[in-house]
Amino acid sequence: MTSIRTLVLAISLTGILLAGWEMHCRSLGFLPTVEDDKHLWAEKRTLIRDNDPDQVLIIGASRAHFDFQLNEWEELTGIRPLMLAANGKSPGPVLQDIIENTAFNGTIVMNITPSLFFIAQHDSVGEWHRAKEWVDFYYSRTWAQRLNHCLSYAVQPYLAFLTDGEEGDPDLKSLLATLPPTGRTKPGTPFPRFSQVESDRNTIMLARMETDTAFQKTIQNAWATFGSKSKRNDDMIDISFPFYLDLIKQLKDRGGKMILTFNPSSGFYTEMEGRVYPRAQYFDAFVKQSGCPAYHFNDYPLLDQFSPPEWSHLCTPDARVYTREILTIMKADGVL
């Protein structure tokens, strides 16, 4: 029956079991971190300031998220940018939200990952829809969700076992998903977590990625599987260019600034992007029509010196150097 000693035993045993679980998670390499989810993104979205020409926003997909390191950025420019880039999501809905729903007139640094940028603006397009969901969540989140986020945000940085939501994480559902497939259904492509974020959404690639070639291969396989569906479709030029150009014009009209970047890739991605989104017709043409300062890593030896371990993102030490180099170039050009 329930008595005080039952409760004491339950709490003590729970403490012991969770302490053991925490140690086990840490021994597997999980570090206490905050979850990069729609709640954290929405919290950062609230920090956009109207009519502040000094504010800098970074938008884009994962290459912007991984490759721009906020500490280095702040060190070199004196301004800590607001990281609103989101993995696997198009920057389109985010830019649209900033232009249509705020009076932001600072600087936006937008990285272009072609397969997430030159797409239709429609909910049936996953890359668009996923970003739109985060933007919509910013507006629809309840006070209860805000409160929960604040509280979990206070706990997450201290407990590694709270890492959840991605393949291979130590939460119960992810653990069950690691059971080996039996072949009854077509197995999904393994895509384990390979990064963690800090409280300001600065991304750190797991150190393991730098040395563990099997781990690199796993992620490369995932990219090859996801990217193999990409087919050249030049209709996307007419579909995507006007959308972004109009938003950029509105930003400029209110005194804001847009800087475009194309961050490093290698291997399969360089090949696929060159084939499906030829630079001349896509990136260069877009840059020309937008009239924005733009930085393609291939154009600068100092930016082209890196080799992303899984073809698409820089490991954190390289990202720090890359951030310094690109900022030095931007400052020299007088765009920052």
Binding site: M1, T2, S3, R5, T6, L7, V8, L9, A10, I11, S12, L13, T14, L17, L18, W21, F161, L162, D164, G165, P170, D171, L172, K173
Partner: peptide, 21 residues
């Protein structure tokens, strides 16, 4: 009491590990 306390602890632990969104 000790069995009930242990069951309670297992439930609490699994709740914490499950986390849930």
């Amino acid at each position: 009491w000790w069995i009930l306390g242990s069951i309670w602890a297992v439930m609490l632990t699994l709740l914490a590990v499950a986390q849930g969104s």
